[in-house]
């Protein structure tokens, strides 16, 4: 999987690269519009992360450029601009997702995977890792073909975990993933905990294994051997 990160803030681009390298992706960086433009014309990428405000150009033009050369790459906009207009504009000209800074790397990872799956595993409706299987369109989950009866939130949670296997996932990022930015709840972590407890119980009941490891003080880790 080859990914291009177009982001002028070098540190942030490096962070993204470091996170994705562990996923086994090949990650290239472009710190400005010109480099990015050159790269998309020369190489083929599976997914491109674009910051809208670049020092020498607008990230939206880059998306137009991609469409002009009929690139099949998935496009995710990462922007500091949180306005609805920008979001709609970005999605209208053909980006697949829009993420507002500051974001959680684990969330970016989950979104990236979702985009890639939609783009490249079109016929394949399932998302399977070892004994775990999810059918996103139908919101169904299985362990070794035993169906899990999950609530909507528990399903979302499992999906998020399966996108970030063996990674430390903070409770903040889980809360944001489940309820969105608007959820300004002081004790939403209690809710995260309650959902995790239920998911863990349901999964253990079928497989006898505890997939969810608690990382004290930080969050959780979804373990698959």
């Amino acid at each position: 999987m080859k990914i291009l990160v177009v982001e002028d803030e070098k540190s942030l681009a490096e962070s993204i690269k470091a996170y994705f390298s562990k996923e086994g992706y090949i990650c290239e960086l472009a710190y400005n519009y010109d480099t990015a433009n050159m790269k998309i014309h020369v190489y083929r990428y599976d997914c491109i992360l674009v910051d809208i405000s670049l020092p020498d150009g607008n990230g939206l033009h880059l998306i137009n450029e991609l469409k002009a050369i009929q690139s099949q790459a998935g496009i995710i906009i990462i922007s500091a601009r949180d306005s609805l207009d920008d979001r709609i504009k970005g999605l209208n000209i053909g980006s697949d997702d829009y993420l507002t800074k500051p974001f959680h790397l684990s969330e970016l990872n989950a979104r990236l995977k979702a985009v890639i799956r939609r783009k490249f595993f079109d016929g394949q409706k399932e998302f399977q890792i070892q004994e775990l299987k999810i059918i996103p369109d139908e919101h169904l989950a299985f362990i070794d073909d035993h169906q899990l009866t999950l609530t909507k939130k528990e399903y979302d949670l499992l999906y998020y975990f399966m996108s970030n296997i063996n990674r430390v996932i903070t409770k903040e990022s889980i809360a944001e993933y489940l309820w969105g930015d608007n959820m300004d709840m002081a004790d939403s972590f209690d809710f995260v905990y309650a959902h995790i407890k239920n998911l863990r119980k349901k999964m253990t009941a079928i497989s006898g294994k505890d997939y969810i490891e608690t990382v004290y003080g930080i969050g959780y880790k979804f373990r698959l051997s």
Binding site: E9, S11, L12, S15, I16, A18, Y19, K22, A80, R81, T100, K101, P102, F103, H104, L105, S106, R167, V168, T170, V215, I218, G219
Partner: peptide
Amino acid sequence: HELQTPLSVIKSKIELIMQ
């Protein structure tokens, strides 16, 4: 807006340390 970017950097670095 300008604050969002350094915040992203801090957040992502901490997340990497956590990994």
